[in-house]
Every structure is written in structure tokens, then in C-alpha cells.
């Protein structure tokens, strides 16, 4: 694991990898959304509003997957003190918050024509809103650390505590009667017709690649910031 601890070595891999993730990701998302909007049949009850699924569902997955990654990175930061762990956790937080917000916004837009309301305070919607606020809290904590670039242990502890919300979001529709329907895609299979399933997977893969590219870009920016800070400190000492 410490093979990649050397930031120079990491940068050597991250720099060429970024466009390799970004451009296929953008193409996949555009292709999936074009296909989803123009080629996919109307749903039996929801009609064409079902198509917002191709943005809403990947955004929900990435919002939750983002915090899972952030929590793992926080554990690595606290236990192994890996130099890139805090940097990666902090790099995940902003796109994670963005996708959580995208999930809430698209869900709200989807809820109006299907359910008849923009918002209800059921278990799923409320726990997802909490995830968005957790992201904001983590970003604020990570930015508050005295040294730019490095992440405080408080932020890492917060990242681990916040992970409790992830299984709650996942189970909310099972534990509690809720306005939101139960999971369509489970380990047992999918109750989404293949006409919707394939563009959904393509879009989810595309958004995931973009997420990865953004995380790499943010990590590189933070490492550059740390270097600038170290250099300025040396100059101040001279």
C-alpha cells in the first residue's frame, strides 16, 4: 500500500489516468442520456418521467459510494497514517456532495409528476438529505484544519461516524413504511425492464468514471497546494 505513498509516484500515475477516465466517462454519460431520452419506451404508469432515472439513480449510488470511500480513506488515515489517505478523503467530499445534491434535486423533480409532491419527510428522503449535510460538515471541517492540504484527525473521525448513515439510507425503505419505493436492483436481481436497465448501467459507469477523474484532479490540486505551502514556509524561514 505504501508503494503509492510517494506523492511524486502517485502524480506520475494520476496525471495520465485523469483524461483516460474523464473523456470515456463524459461520452458514456452523454450517450446513455441521449439513448435514454430518445430511444427508451414510456413506462406503464409513469410515462416519460421515468427517464430521469438515468441521472437520479447514478447520482444516488455515487453520493452513497462517495461517503463509503471517504470513510475507508479516513480509517486508512487514522490507522496507517498513509499520506495520501486524507488527501483522497478530502478530494472525494466535494463531488460526493455534488452527486448527493443532484440526487435530491432530480428526485424532487421526479416526485412531482409521479407521487404528486416535491418532497416528503419519509425515511429515505430524510436520510439522503442528512448525507448531503454530512458532506457539507466534512468539507467545512477539512477546510478548517490549520494547514492547507492536510486533513485533521477530527475530520477523519467525522468521516467514520458519518458512515453510520449509509446502511440507514440503504435499509430505510425496508425498515420503515415510506413514500419512496423499495430497491429495484438487489443481489437477487432487478425489477427494472432491460429497456431501462442498460442505459442506466451505462450512465452509472460514465458518472463513476467522471467521479474518479474529478477525485484525481482534486488530489493533484491539493498535493500542489501542499508543495506551495512547504516552499513558502522554507522561503519565510530563509
Amino acid at each position: 500500500m505504501h508503494r503509492f505513498a510517494n506523492p511524486a509516484r502517485f502524480l506520475g500515475i494520476a496525471k495520465p489516468l485523469t483524461p483516460l477516465l474523464l473523456w470515456p466517462g463524459i461520452l458514456l454519460v452523454l450517450g446513455a442520456c441521449w439513448w435514454g431520452l430518445t430511444q427508451v419506451p414510456a413506462e406503464r404508469l409513469q410515462g416519460h418521467s421515468v427517464k430521469i432515472m438515468f441521472v437520479h439513480v447514478p447520482a444516488a449510488w455515487l453520493g452513497m459510494g462517495g461517503w463509503t470511500g471517504l470513510a475507508i480513506a479516513s480509517i486508512v488515515q487514522l490507522v496507517w497514517k498513509h499520506p495520501l489517505a486524507g488527501v483522497s478523503a478530502r478530494a472525494i467530499a466535494v463531488p460526493g456532495a455534488l452527486f448527493a445534491a443532484l440526487c435530491l434535486i432530480t428526485g424532487s423533480i421526479w416526485g412531482r409528476p409521479t407521487w404528486g409532491t416535491w418532497w416528503v419527510w419519509d425515511g429515505r428522503l430524510t436520510s439522503m438529505l442528512i448525507l448531503f449535510f454530512l458532506y457539507l460538515g466534512y468539507i467545512a471541517l477539512a477546510n478548517a484544519s490549520s494547514e492547507k492540504g492536510s486533513v485533521s484527525r477530527t475530520a477523519a473521525v467525522f468521516g467514520i461516524i458519518g458512515a453510520v448513515n449509509i446502511p440507514i439510507i440503504n435499509r430505510s425503505v425496508v425498515w420503515w413504511e415510506s413514500q419512496h419505493q423499495k430497491a429495484s436492483i438487489t443481489l437477487g436481481g432487478s425489477s427494472i425492464d432491460s429497456a431501462y436497465l442498460w442505459p442506466l448501467f451505462a450512465s452509472a459507469l460514465g458518472f463513476t468514471l467522471i467521479f474518479g477523474a474529478v477525485v484525481l484532479m482534486r488530489m493533484r490540486a491539493q498535493l500542489a497546494e501542499i508543495r506551495i505551502e512547504a516552499r513558502m514556509r522554507r522561503m519565510a524561514e530563509d
Binding site: 427508451v40 419506451p41 414510456a42 413506462e43 406503464r44 404508469l45 409513469q46 410515462g47 421515468v50 432515472m53 409521479t114 407521487w115 404528486g116 409532491t117 416528503v120 413514500q179 419505493q181 423499495k182 430497491a183 429495484s184 425489477s191 427494472i192 425492464d193 429497456a195 431501462y196
Partner: peptide, 16 residues
């Protein structure tokens, strides 16, 4: 007030 609640099945109209 009434809200509709749809289930987890997504089926195209022509297959219903």
C-alpha cells in the same frame, strides 16, 4: 390529500 406511490417495478407501456 392523496399521493401516488409507485412500486419498484419499471415496465414499458407496450409490455404491460
Amino acid at each position: 390529500s392523496l399521493l401516488a406511490k409507485h412500486d419498484e417495478n419499471y415496465v414499458p407501456r407496450e409490455l404491460k
